[in-house]
Each structure stands twice: as structure tokens, then as C-alpha cells.
């Protein structure tokens, strides 16, 4: 069936062209958001309101997940390390894995599904109920008034959430290994402190979370703004936000890690 082959190749080509097209639209939208950010910086109240919705309301899930991830890391790390008699290095293991990787990455994944999806749904719904059009007719630019504050709030909250996640994780690891199992507290902290470097580990983790914050919120606001103005359109866009930003987080993490830790132990 050569016809079927041709049509499936055409289909693939069509999809590729379509996604490149969409990427172009998204990039233009992203630049537009940056250009129109003046309003949100001048009226910071708008950003504070969104900080509440993206940051404060994500706190619970971040704190609880961080605690559990740290506890699991402590437990698993202890099980393995004690075979080599170096269970005091468990603090190092917990802290390094959290600060370098798990903190920024897992916090960003949680952030995408908690706050990112909410941003997409909210903007998509505003579009579907003509609120954005109404705003435009009232001579107020919806990108400046609705999109930009949400974008900046997301960018600001992400590093804070990642740091809170890491701290809760370290605390969870401490709880399991020191308090429950009984690893020596002094060596737990001192090994951790001598192994974790401020510039290479903590600063790089912080930079990572900033990148993730920009990526997740940019995807979330674009999907919301670009959603077809129907119920199915908005729900589809919400799903796409979570899927796309999760993939982008993991891909970006690889690239950033390769850049940051290249050639260093």
C-alpha cells in the first residue's frame, strides 16, 4: 500500500512542521511577555497576589514531599552505606543528592503539576469565558495584566520552593538516620558540611531551579493563552502543560548538569 505509506509520511511531516510552528509562536509569546513585564514590575501588588497562588499554595506539597524524599534517601543510603561501614557519610549522600539534583528537579516537577496546571487552567478559562477579550476591549493588555504577573510570580517562587524542598529533605534524612537509627549526629553534619560546596553545589542547584521556574511558568502561561476556548481545549492544555514541562525539566536538567559539573569529580 504505497498510498498509506505516503500518507503516513505526510502525517509525520505535518506533525513536525506543526510543532516547529508552535515552538515559534511560543518563543514570540515569551518575548512578548518579557517586553510587557513593565506593568507587573511597576505594580508589584499584581505579582504578590499571584505569588500567593503559585508559591504559598504550593508550600504544603513541597514541604511534605521534601520530608518524605529525604527520609527515603536517608533510609536507603543508610542500608547501602552501612555495608561498607561508612554510615556516617549518609548526611553527605542525602545533602548532595538533594541540593544538586532532587531538590530542584522534584520541586520543579511538583510545581509544574500543582501551580503550572493551575496557571494554565486559569488563563485558559479566562480566555474561554471571554474575560481576556473583555480586558482587551477595555484597552488593557491581557499579556501585561494577566500573563506577566503570573509568569514573574512563578519565576520568583521556584527557587524558594526548591530550597525549602532541599532543607526539608535534609531534615527528613536527619530524622531517619540520626534520630531513629542512631547515626552519630556530629559526623552526620560534619561530613555533609565538608562535602557540600557552596559555589558548586548550592549555587548551581539554585541556578537550576531558576531555569526550571522560567521554563515551567513560560510553558504554563503559553498553553493557557493558546488554549482553544472550550472546555476540552482548556483541559487538554492543562495536561499538555504538565507533560511538556516535566519533559523540559528533565531534559534541561541534563543539559545544565553537563555544563555545571563537566570535568569536575
Amino acid at each position: 500500500m504505497p498510498n498509506r505509506i505516503v500518507s503516513s509520511i505526510q502525517n509525520i511531516g505535518h506533525r513536525v512542521i506543526e510543532s516547529v510552528w508552535r515552538l515559534g509562536v511560543a518563543s514570540r509569546f515569551f518575548i512578548l511577555v518579557l517586553l510587557k513585564s513593565g506593568t507587573s514590575l511597576r505594580r508589584f501588588n499584581l505579582v504578590i497576589r499571584e505569588l500567593y497562588f503559585t508559591g504559598v499554595l504550593s508550600l504544603i506539597i513541597i514541604v511534605v514531599s521534601g520530608l518524605f524524599v529525604g527520609m527515603v534517601l536517608g533510609l536507603q543510603g543508610y542500608e547501602t552505606l552501612q555495608k561498607y561501614g561508612s554510615e556516617s557519610a549518609v548526611g553527605t549522600l542525602v545533602a548532595l543528592s538533594l541540593v544538586r539534583e532532587l531538590g530542584p528537579v522534584v520541586a520543579a516537577l511538583l510545581f509544574a503539576s500543582r501551580a503550572g496546571s493551575a496557571i494554565t487552567a486559569e488563563i485558559g478559562l479566562m480566555k474561554a469565558t471571554e474575560q481576556l477579550a473583555a480586558m482587551g476591549m477595555m484597552a488593557v493588555d491581557p499579556i501585561a495584566r494577566v500573563v506577566a504577573p503570573r509568569f514573574w510570580a512563578g519565576v520568583i517562587s521556584m527557587p524558594f520552593l526548591a530550597a525549602i524542598f532541599s532543607v526539608m529533605g535534609v531534615f527528613g534524612g536527619y530524622l531517619v538516620t540520626v534520630v531513629f537509627i542512631g547515626v552519630d549526629e556530629g559526623s552526620f553534619w560534619s561530613q555533609m558540611q565538608s562535602a557540600v560546596d557552596f559555589r558548586f553545589d548550592i549555587l548551581n542547584g539554585f541556578i537550576k531551579s531558576c531555569f526550571f521556574g522560567v521554563a515551567v511558568t513560560a510553558i504554563a502561561v503559553f498553553e493557557g493563552y493558546d488554549a482553544p476556548p472550550t472546555a476540552e481545549g482548556v483541559s487538554g492544555a492543562t495536561t499538555r502543560t504538565v507533560v511538556t514541562s516535566s519533559l523540559v525539566i528533565l531534559g534541561l536538567d541534563f543539559i545544565l548538569t553537563a555544563f555545571m559539573f563537566r570535568g569536575v569529580s
Binding site: I48, L51, Y52, G55, V56, L59, A95, V99, S157, P159, F160, L161, A163, I164, S166, V167, V170, W189, M192, Q193, S194, V196, D197, F198, D201, I202, G205, F206
Partner: peptide, 23 residues
């Protein structure tokens, strides 16, 4: 709440820098 959130975030960053990273 937002103020509390920002303070918590900054404290977390300080704990990471001073207690975990031993800056």
C-alpha cells in the same frame, strides 16, 4: 502569607548555605 513564604524561602537558602554547605 506571601511575606511568610518569602521569609521561609530565604531562611531555607540560608540554612542550605550555612548549615548544609558550611559557607
Amino acid at each position: 502569607w506571601v511575606g511568610l513564604f518569602v521569609v521561609t524561602g530565604i531562611i531555607a537558602l540560608m540554612i542550605l548555605s550555612l548549615k548544609v554547605g558550611n559557607l
